[in-house]
Design a binder for these strands. Structure first.
Length: 452
RNA sequence: GGCGCUAUGGUGCAACGGUUAGCACGCGGCCCUUUCAAGGCUGAAAUACGGGUUCGAUUCCCGUUAGCGCUACCA
């Protein structure tokens, strides 16, 4: 785990913790403590000096951002506006004059105390090649590559330098990263060569775009991994969804649990086309993971959700694991996000719940209901055995004797017992909730039913 | 502007010279269900455009267009 924090301006330590937290949630593990590039500056400086000594690099005394010519030196703000090319002037980066300085010229700047950056001396001719595991053989004209900065005048390395130095030092075998780095890879290959190291395997993967087809960013709303955790997505569902963005197992499989993903993944299946992040598909995966795996896989996540909502302490769920599993199993076919367990399914975990307005309107209309529900409570209370069929028979028997359809009672009772129109099947719910609670809730609801 | 990458339904992927162009999400319909989901069946929906190569192009080549990326003393 390496934190590439060499941009002094933008680096914010708080953000790093969020990133690590997100990765942990995703289930990405790493060895040892994270390595912070900002804490191993001497390593990069030494490499830069070595390149300077060998002639692969040169000292540049230009004012920061002066070279690279006109437009490239524009400030961050100016860059925001570009995009429509009407205002952009065509130019070819002029070579940095410092590149050809004589010893005397250099000494003169040093004496004057001019700030010194170190740039890579890119060959004027020839090509730089490398093989990308996804995009295939790559070749760029060296003339197209500018004399990029390795070490800033403040002594901090740029990404290009630090990343190569670290990858060599950490013995990285495969560099798998976003395709936005494809164009810069030749620069890094040049550094590997100058440093006398063999380049690793490069594999560039397509970018993830927002619905508007621009690179995913804060503008698109929830973009940090953490926000999906908060929203109630399951990490495994997120992994499955993400894995299929830009990669395919080669056949039609969609639901792939993490062990299968790991087993089947191959660089050869990675696509070269950017993919649009589709929230609806992510939600579909979440429902799949909420429903298909054994309920026990889900329990820790539901527990966490109940704790978050303050419904865990002292609850039956916390005391009786088997009951908890049964309740979750009953509820989960109708869930989409973890939050569903504490919103519409709240009544399964606490007696403190409301009757949903729409449910009351829809199912408590009939004026005979208060009387019938009272009778239902009595009938259920008198049941010797508490199981699905007994509850079913008791309710249907009452419906028959009252001359109403069972559905009327079923729907009304459901609202009385769990407060919602959308809920699991009534009799299974009764069994899980238990006779005492069901009878009590039925009686407790009576005034509200009459009011309706 | 320069250089590069990409291009299959609205979205994510299959088909890697010969298929009625397949699957999934989403959308519509039907079934199941006295709630709502899930599930099953089903419908609409695509090879960006133009040239080649080939007996035959989604597939190979070229061009156009579009999108994206890089072109920073950002990563």
């Amino acid at each position: 785990m390496r934190i590439e924090d060499t941009d002094v301006e933008r680096n914010r330590p708080e953000l790093v913790e969020g990133i690590l937290e997100g990765l942990r949630w995703l289930g990405i593990e790493w060895e040892g403590d994270p390595i912070y590039q900002s804490q191993r500056l001497p390593l990069y400086r030494a490499a830069a000096e070595r390149l300077l000594a060998s002639g692969a690099a040169f000292a540049c005394y230009c004012k920061a951002a002066a070279y690279a010519g006109g437009d490239a030196a524009t400030s961050e703000e100016d860059r925001e506006g570009e995009g429509d090319d009407e205002g952009t002037k065509a130019y070819k980066a002029a070579p940095c004059p410092c590149r050809e300085f004589s010893d005397a010229e250099r000494a003169e700047r040093e004496r004057a105390g001019a700030a010194r950056a170190i740039r890579f001396r890119v060959g004027r001719e020839g090509v730089t090649k490398f093989e990308d595991a996804v995009f295939g053989p790559r070749e760029v004209q060296n003339a197209e590559i500018e004399d990029f900065v390795l070490l800033r005048s403040n002594g901090i390395p740029t990404y290009q330098l630090s990343v190569v130095v670290d990858d060599i030092e950490m013995q990285i075998s495969h560099i798998i990263r976003g395709a936005d780095h494809l164009s810069n890879t030749p620069k890094q290959v040049l550094i590997y060569q100058a440093l006398g190291a063999a380049p690793p395997v490069f594999a560039h993967v397509p970018l993830i775009l927002g619905p508007d087809r621009t690179r995913l960013s804060k503008r698109h709303g929830a973009t940090s991994v953490g926000s999906y955790a908060e929203e109630g997505f399951l990490p495994e569902a997120f992994r499955n969804f993400l894995a299929l963005l830009g990669w395919s197992p080669g056949d039609d499989s969609e639901f792939l649990r993490t062990n299968e993903l790991i087993e089947r993944f191959a660089l050869s299946g990675v696509s070269r086309t950017n993919a649009v992040f589709d929230r609806a598909t992510l939600e579909w995966f979440n429902t799949q993971y909420l429903q298909k795996p054994p309920a026990t896989d889900l329990l820790p996540f539901v527990e966490q959700e109940l704790r978050r909502a303050g419904l865990w302490e002292g609850s039956q769920a916390s005391r009786d694991g088997a009951w908890f599993a049964r309740a979750v199993d009953l509820i989960r076919p109708r869930t989409r996000l973890l939050g569903d367990f504490t919103t519409w399914a709240r009544a399964f975990f606490t007696d403190d719940f409301d009757y949903e307005a729409e449910a009351r309107q829809k199912f408590w209309k009939d004026e005979r209901l208060p009387a019938m529900l009272a009778k239902l409570a009595d009938a259920l209370e008198g049941l010797p055995d508490w199981n699905h069929d007994a509850c079913d028979a008791a309710l249907r028997g009452l419906a028959t004797s009252e001359g109403v359809k069972a559905g009327l009672l079923i729907n009304a009772a459901r609202v009385a017992i769990v407060g919602r129109a959308v809920a699991p099947p009534l009799f299974e719910t009764m069994v899980v909730l238990g006779k005492e609670r069901v009878v009590a809730r039925l009686r407790r609801a009576l005034p509200a039913v009459s009011a309706r």
